[in-house]
């Protein structure tokens, strides 16, 4: 097993306020890795630091054997680090098609637009029917599908998805989770997910990290964590 992403002793925050202390994690190639933790733990911040939207104060981010810590985000995207952000970040006044094209903005992805579109429509057939609709008028579930599809258009080598199930009805959330798993199973894509719904996350993930107030508190195979009494108590809520 080789790690495609390795976060080494990462410290970062906003302004002068630290949010992450000494976060280390590995993402194995072809795996689904989950990062879980309560609200405000720093999950989104971790993903933003990995893609380079915010700088690392200390520590290193190594991707496919290369230190990318100092690279601007557009260079990291070019290398295949792609984040589907919390809140989806679709471009509301653009059509679905234009959003997908924006996904393929990086030079590597631009060469393969037709193939990427076919691939994305195969996974999300609903998007094909709505190509010319303004993205802002899509339903919440459709917007989430578009956000993931747009991420795939970038030809990621690591796809990070922040809160795919947020704000969706349970049935739809489950459907999206299964699609994420399908993408990994069919294409061997490496995926790092952040999820509020720990149950969903541990269900599809191979390995998971638990973040608490900016520190990694626990890690292990998802199946083991799902049976861990502390996790069950804190996140899986036995009533």
């Amino acid at each position: 097993m080789t790690a495609i992403l390795s976060v080494e002793r990462l410290h970062t925050g906003y302004g002068k306020i630290p949010v992450l202390w000494d976060v280390s994690m590995q993402v194995e190639k072809g795996s689904i890795t989950a990062l879980i933790g309560s609200n405000g733990a720093g999950k989104t911040t971790t993903l933003r630091a990995i893609v380079g939207i915010i700088p690392a104060w200390k520590g290193r981010i190594v991707f496919a054997g290369e230190d990318v810590t100092k690279l601007p985000s557009y260079r990291r995207v070019e290398k295949g680090i792609v984040l589907v952000p919390e809140g989806r970040g679709i471009f509301p006044q653009m059509t679905v098609y234009e959003n997908l094209l924006m996904g393929a903005y990086n030079q590597r992805a631009r060469q393969k637009i037709q193939e990427s579109l076919e691939r994305v429509f195969n996974i999300f057939p609903r998007l094909r029917e709505r190509l010319n609709q303004k993205a802002g008028t899509l339903s919440g579930g459709e917007q989430q599908m578009l956000a993931i599809a747009r991420g795939l258009m970038a030809l990621p080598r690591l796809l990070m998805i922040d809160e795919a199930s947020l704000g969706l009805a349970p049935k739809l959330a489950l459907e999206i989770m299964n699609l994420v798993k399908r993408i990994r199973d069919e294409e061997g894509l490496t995926i790092l997910i952040v999820e509020q719904n720990v149950h969903y996350a541990l269900n599809i993930a191979d390995y998971a990290y638990v973040l608490e107030t900016g520190r990694i508190r626990m890690e292990g195979p998802a199946k083991e964590l799902a049976e861990n009494p502390e996790i069950i108590k804190a996140y899986l809520g036995v009533h």
Binding site: V51, Y74, V77, V82, G89, I90, F91, P92, Q93, M94
Partner: peptide
């Protein structure tokens, strides 16, 4: 398209590699 993306959502545009 990149210009319009930046107008609508600067961070999302950066995430597209802009």
């Amino acid at each position: 398209r990149a210009v319009r993306a930046v107008v609508m959502n600067q961070e999302a545009a950066a995430l597209m590699g802009v």
